[in-house]
C-alpha cells in the first residue's frame, strides 16, 4: 500500500539509464588477462559492445536477469571454471547463451558442455571468421529467445483475466467434457457452466473450442 502511494504521488525516478543493462553485450570471462584484452579488442573493433571479466565470480557478481547478449568464457580457470559458470547461469535462470573457448579441445568436456546447452565450443586460436560467426549466432539466438518470450507473454496476457473458477471450467472444457459432465464434476448447475464458458470465450476473444485449444497450445499451457 505504501508502495502504491509512493508511485502515484512522487514520480521522482528517471527510467533506467539507457544502455546500462539492456544494450546487447558480449560478456567475456577469462583469467588470462592478456588474452582477455586481446579478445575484447578484436570484438570491439568488430563492432560489438563488450564487457570483460577476469573471473567467473566477477561476472556472476554483476549478473542481472535483464542482461542481453551472450557470454564468451574460457573453459579452464582457477576457482569457478567455465562449466561451473554455465551451471551457475543455468541455475539463475539467465537466458544468456554461452560460448566456450579452450586452449585445446578436449572431447569429453565438449560433449558435456554441448549437452548442457553450450552455444558453441571453439579453440582460442580458431579462425576469426568462425569466432565472429559464433558470437553472431549466439546473439541471434538470444534475440530470438527474447522475442519468443515477449510473444508468449502477450499470448498469456488474456488468461490472467480469468477467474479461478473459469480456469477450472476451462481445464474441463479442454479435456473435451460436456457441460453436463463439468457441472457434475464441479458440483454446480449446468447453466452456470454455460455462463462461465461464455465469459471465457469473451475474455479470450475466441469463437470456438477449436480456436480455444489452439490459443492454449500457442501460449504454451498444458
Amino acid at each position: 500500500m505504501q508502495q502504491a502511494a509512493v508511485k502515484n504521488e512522487t514520480p521522482c525516478y528517471e527510467p533506467p539509464a539507457a544502455g546500462r543493462t539492456s544494450e546487447v553485450t558480449v560478456y567475456i570471462v577469462d583469467d588470462d588477462l592478456s588474452f582477455l584484452r586481446s579478445l575484447s579488442r578484436l570484438l570491439r573493433a568488430s563492432g560489438f559492445h563488450v564487457i570483460a571479466y577476469a573471473s567467473a565470480a566477477d561476472f556472476l557478481a554483476e549478473l542481472k536477469p535483464d542482461m542481453n547478449g551472450c557470454v564468451v568464457t574460457d573453459l579452464m580457470m582457477p576457482g569457478l571454471d567455465g562449466m561451473a559458470l554455465q551451471e551457475a547461469l543455468r541455475k539463475s535462470g539467465s537466458p544468456l547463451p554461452i560460448l566456450f573457448l579452450t586452449g585445446h579441445g578436449n572431447i569429453p568436456t565438449t560433449v558435456q558442455a554441448m549437452r548442457r546447452g553450450a552455444e558453441d565450443f571453439l579453440t582460442k586460436h580458431a579462425p576469426k571468421e568462425e569466432l565472429l560467426a559464433s558470437v553472431n549466432r549466439a546473439l541471434a539466438r538470444n534475440e530470438q529467445d527474447r522475442a519468443e518470450r515477449v510473444r508468449l507473454e502477450s499470448l498469456r496476457q488474456p488468461f490472467m483475466l480469468l477467474s479461478d473458477r473459469e480456469r477450472e471450467v476451462l481445464r474441463h472444457v479442454l479435456q473435451g467434457k460436456l457441460n453436463k459432465e463439468i457441472a457434475a464434476d464441479l458440483g454446480i448447475h449446468e447453466r452456470t457452466v454455460k455462463l462461465h464458458r461464455t465469459s471465457i470465450t469473451t475474455k479470450l476473444r475466441v469463437h470456438s473450442v477449436a480456436e480455444l485449444t489452439r490459443l492454449v497450445q500457442a501460449a504454451g499451457f498444458h
Binding site: R37, S38, G103, H125
Partner: peptide, 22 residues
C-alpha cells in the same frame, strides 16, 4: 605446457586481428 604456450600465442593472434581492423 602446450596449453600454457597456446595462451600467449592465441592472444598474439587476436591482437593482430584487432590491429588489422583498427
Amino acid at each position: 605446457l602446450a596449453h600454457e604456450l597456446s595462451q600467449p600465442l592465441s592472444a598474439i593472434l587476436r591482437n593482430t586481428e584487432a590491429a588489422e581492423i583498427l
